[in-house]
Simulated assay, not measured.
Amino acid sequence: MRARRTDPDRRDRIVDATVDLIAEVGVAGVSHRKIAARADVPLGSMTYHFTGMDELLHEAFTRFAEHVAASFEARLGAARDVEEAVEAVVDLVHELSDHGNHRDQVVSYELYTLAARDPRYRAITTGWMARSRRELERHLDPSLTRQLDALIEGLALHRALDEDPFDRSVTLDAVRKIVGVAGPPPGRAAR
């Protein structure tokens, strides 16, 4: 009797490869064949692990949203006061919108497009937004968190797509206005 070959990480590799391909070719460009090749798995593994492309896409976007939410939580979780939370939010906007972060930007936009049409994907974005707001509420009045969460998304989108993106001072000013925190005293620059 031959020993059975096991590959316990195969399912995870398939999901990770799916996210990578979505970033490269969009949801419309992914296929079972392309994903299997990228994950270095037999094509039959696709139907063994997933009932279809929708299940695979849903899991890939769920994993992606978890990754982004965890990053947000780590950044805001390190803040010790409101001013540090403001700085963390500004850092996040610029991290999310830097042209070097193209992969996460594209995957986010692909998820938003699906969420606009399909309630199952909207549940992913709703959960992601709720986690963001809970983290913001650790430092800020809950009545502000929806506004600030929307501002984060909007600023990141505008910076990412603008050929001449605004600098950190614009982001810092906008966040401070929402939060109601004054800037540094005259003569003292913001970090």
Rank of each mutant, 00 (worst) to 15 (best):
D91F: 01
A23F: 12
A85S: 15
A23P: 06
E163P: 09
R117F: 06
R133T: 09
A85D: 07
L56M: 07
T18E: 03
G77W: 14
D7I: 01
Q105P: 01
V107F: 13
L56T: 08
V82W: 05
G127C: 05
I178G: 08
Q147P: 07
M46H: 00
G26S: 12
R168H: 09
V179C: 10
A130H: 05
S71L: 11
I152F: 08
H94Y: 03
E110C: 03
A28E: 11
R103G: 07
E135M: 15
V107R: 13
S108E: 02
D164G: 10
V15D: 03
A174T: 15
L151H: 08
T6D: 03
R33S: 06
D98F: 04
H102Y: 08
A65E: 03
V89A: 13
S97L: 00
A70Y: 12
G44H: 00
P186W: 12
V181H: 10
T145W: 15
A3Q: 11
G52Y: 05
A60N: 07
V68W: 01
I178Y: 01
D104G: 04
A123H: 03
M46E: 01
R33D: 09
H94K: 02
V41L: 00
R188G: 08
F166M: 01
R4M: 06
R2V: 05
G100E: 12
P142D: 15
R117S: 08
A150C: 12
A116N: 09
F61P: 08
G77H: 04
D104Y: 10
A17Q: 12
R13L: 07
T51Q: 06
R38M: 05
A69C: 10
E87W: 02
S132H: 15
P186C: 09
D141P: 14
A190P: 10
V179N: 11
A36P: 00
L148V: 14
L140Y: 10
A85I: 11
V30I: 14
R2P: 11
S108N: 08
D149Y: 09
A39T: 02
L144A: 11
R11P: 13
T47W: 06
